[in-house]
């Protein structure tokens, strides 16, 4: 069970309090109608799935309820950092 630092609560809490939210920094287009089918497919489905540093979203679902971002190594599962939604990619 991972131990995750919530940047809002400023506490490390067990994984069962959190819900994983998929890859981070994939912004929904302001006007999806301008997207081609290929662009829309990429937004919906294409993910980087790296071996190593992964930017991802978590929600402190059973805590403050906030979404935040994290950088985690997908080989060791070690968190490098967590940061608030809206902050620049780390």
């Amino acid at each position: 069970m991972l131990l995750i630092h919530c940047p809002y609560c400023e506490e490390a809490r067990p994984e069962v309090e959190f819900a994983y939210g998929g890859e981070a920094h994939i912004a929904r287009p302001v006007d999806p109608s301008t997207y081609s089918d290929e662009q829309w497919e990429e937004f919906l489905y294409i993910r980087s799935n790296p071996r190593g540093r992964h930017h991802e979203r978590w929600r402190h679902a059973h805590g403050c309820g906030r979404f935040f971002n994290a950088v985690r190594d997908t080989v060791t599962d070690v968190f490098e950092t967590t940061y608030k939604a809206g902050e620049a990619r780390k």
Binding site: R28, R59, A61, F67, A85, G86
Partner: peptide
């Protein structure tokens, strides 16, 4: 609720 929170917090803050 989770889906709405997601959009509210991360897309339309």
């Amino acid at each position: 609720l989770n889906m709405m929170e997601d959009y509210l917090q991360t897309e339309w803050a």
